[in-house]
Amino acid sequence: MAKQDLIKHTRIRKAVQGGWGLLHNAHLAGFITGQIYQGPLKKFCVPGMNCYSCPGAVGACPIGSMQALFDARKRKFAFYVVGYLAAIGMLVGRFICGWLCLFGLIQELLYKIPTPKITVPEKADKILRYLKYIMLFVFVFGLSFFYRNEVNVGMPWFCKYICPVGTLEGGIPLVLLNSGMRAAAGALFRWKFILLILCVAASIFIYRPFCKYVCPLGAFYALFQKVSILRMSFDESSCVNCGACSRQCKMGVDPMKNPNSAECIRCGECVKVCPKNALSWTAVGKAKKPVIVKVAEE
């Protein structure tokens, strides 16, 4: 039963991820003309990673926008984007990562390619998980906020030197569709292309490596996991310690120990596989014990 539930849940989640990805890349004509969408929706940020230079994108990328605001406003804080992302984080935490981010879906699909999978050794994994906070606090906040060149212009450091999302969604289609851009693509493009290849290759063998180790947006939402309105609740009295939940979790979380871990993308798979309904979704301030458990026990 739990297995059937999980299959259905996975299908629904994939449909939501794919549907959402299509929705905010709905400017399909851009993939033919090589022109990006320039309409009014571009003033709004999407909640996940989605490059605004993607020919299909109808919204703005929050990480790119944050860095652009630091530059445009000359070291004045990006209240609009930071407040918007913090509000999402306060509502649902990393639920966006599990359900509403196209780049998360792309990594999941790559992981489905049938090859032997790699488990990163625990110690290395633990250290590497901090890298995404370096991306957030050094590249997105630090350098983009403080660095200015001789003519007082800053730059989006994460976009420029790291982001594989920009290369995949913006760089490759635009360079393919536009001869001028092809001619202009030099060492920086090659560097970013190598990073993208590494990211794609790693995603085949490791589940969501960009999300686990690199993504500054995932790191930002992770800061709110423990205080968000949506939370996961663990009912110890129903748990039979079978370990099905932690075995199911491909993000390496043990929801029995830490149901609101910063690494949890709130995909909900552990909730579905638990044979005793010991894990459930709840809202802050609500009773922790899920009603469904009592009904099942009677």
Partner: peptide, 10 residues
């Protein structure tokens, strides 16, 4: 920023 192609992104 979002209506112009971002050269850094690509």
């Amino acid at each position: 920023k979002a209506v112009a192609i971002c050269m850094e992104c690509i």
